[in-house]
Design a protein around this nucleic acid. Structure first.
Lengths: 217, 217
DNA sequence: TAGATTGTTAATCGATTAACAATC
DNA sequence: TAGATTGTTAATCGATTAACAATC
């Protein structure tokens, strides 16, 4: 099966969620000078089984080598290619509060192929202020900037109460994916992908786990 | 089955992940003055099926009412109780960079029962600076503060390269849960729960979705 | 009462694991 | 070659959905 057809085929949701983990680990290993990693090496590092790893990698246009395992550089490249990270992904952040600014300034995104191309806010006191190299723009500029800068993804970093409204504006402006940092549930047309960052939900999950684990000694 | 035994029983992982969503929606509805919500109302709002909603709620010590549905206030309380949010959860943030500071200042956590009790960093230029009401403490203070302040959860907001090392210090200090904001995979003993916030992984998931959705027109 | 909605059981679907032949 | 490790098939496990009797 060719790379193209494999890439267009459906990859199961749970597999797509793990691909970024393989990418991060392959990158780390390669940078540490490690050239080969086995399915069980990956499994141990990521808390999976070697079976899951091998099964997952069948969905990707990349093969291991008997007796040696997977080339770290090859795996890294294959993951990046499959996830669509071989070209830069252009991102806009809506909301210039603490969280929005922190993400805009978070260097790791740059080094991982995400390019922050605009920061937007409706608050007059925020508009015009600098965030790193960028200047906070009013929401009325959103559509024009998304089109001009060919922005793919919008990050919603506003209060939950206005999250849906901001998402609607992002959809209208033509973004193709939305990262939701709020607790609100965002509804979007099927042509726009929505992923929840779930920071507060993760803390709540932890609160549950903390109470459920063996009781405090 | 009593509340206690139900709470101690295993709740499936996917169900625990959805409980925070029910909580957020029930809270929003109650605040909007809505008293009752049906399983299909919840399903529509959260992108689930009504079957999943009813099935999920069987794991919780709370019942709906025929013909009316679920009381928003009762649902909110049951979710908070089940997740262990009926008392405050005490949190420490390690890493006083952009992301760590943003989370420390993020008001929503306070209003949702998470109390930030300490911010730590190893960088001499960060130590002693104020973050909201708190003063950034050196890492050498971590253990004492975790014990004195009875901190339950540590948030890892440091560069990925030192994430495991920081997690080890948190485990040693006695936290019972870790929220990992880095791309590193954190390994901890079974007695400490680890949840990944997956911000970069979420962006990567979106990058995949964006390329896979109908091609750009 | 009649009708809407829950709680529960059974069926389906998808993800994970186990096992092993093929490979280098 | 011998042995380690992949790729793949089949079995198991868990999550979701469908269907409907019980309920108010």
């Amino acid at each position: 099966m060719s790379a193209t057809s494999e890439r267009n085929n459906h990859i199961p949701k749970m597999v797509v969620r793990r691909l970024p983990k393989y990418l991060a680990h392959a990158q780390k290993m390669r940078q540490a000078g490690v050239q080969w990693i086995s399915s069980s090496g990956l499994a141990d590092a990521l808390g999976l089984t070697s079976s899951t790893v091998r099964q997952d990698l069948t969905h990707v246009d990349f093969s291991g080598v008997s007796k040696r395992g997977y080339s770290t550089a090859g795996l890294e490249a294959a993951m990046a290619r499959t996830l669509g990270l071989d070209e830069d992904i252009r991102v806009a952040i809506v909301g210039a509060g603490n969280l929005g600014r922190a993400l805009a300034l978070h260097g790791e995104f740059f080094s991982q192929g995400f390019k922050i191309c605009g920061v937007f806010d409706n608050n007059p006191t925020a508009i015009g202020k600098k965030v790193g190299q960028l200047v906070v723009q009013p929401m009325s500029d959103l559509s024009d900037t998304v089109r001009r800068e060919r922005i793919d993804i919008g990050i919603v970093a506003v209060p939950s109460a206005v999250a849906q409204q901001v998402a609607d504006q992002l959809v209208f402006s033509g973004v193709r994916g939305i990262l939701n940092l709020t607790t609100a549930n965002i509804v979007a047309p099927k042509s726009v992908a929505v992923v929840d960052a779930r920071i507060l939900a993760s803390l709540r999950e932890l609160a549950y786990a903390v109470r459920t684990l063996e009781p405090r000694g």
